[in-house]
Amino acid sequence: MTITLKVNGKSHEIDTDASTPLLYVLRNDLGLHGPKFGCGLGQCGACTVQVGGRAMFSCIMPIAAIGGREITTVEGLLENGKPNKVQQAFIDEQAAQCGYCIAGMVMRAQSLLQTNPKPTEAEIRQHMRPNLCRCGTHAAILRAVKRAAAA
């Protein structure tokens, strides 16, 4: 079936099974590799993107459920080809080790700062809770979110 998706400001006609989770469409049909496959179960957050302005697990979001909502991936945060405020803060803090989780982390942090521009440490930790990191980059990620909030 053909579904129209608006991703990072552009419309795309996607012809695929309606049960396909958004993650596979973004990665395979649109070549956007920022969102990652981590569990396919909504447990780890590596696939986090924004749908309708909110951070969501794209691995458990069938495209049949999206409707007209706009989708933003980590690639869509770039402003004139340059990292946006949150991305730049992650770069400045070198907040990535293997980095597999990090696009999801950036998207989760972006959502927090959109709704709560000056979060407390406890609010940041609670908000970032759905996203897992195995390398132990958490401390650097927390510094990056604070830096972005202060920027």
Partner: peptide
């Protein structure tokens, strides 16, 4: 490798 990982440009095995 960090900027590419944070903007989504980096190519992982996956």
């Amino acid at each position: 490798d960090v900027p590419g990982k944070i903007t989504g440009a980096f190519t992982y095995m996956q």
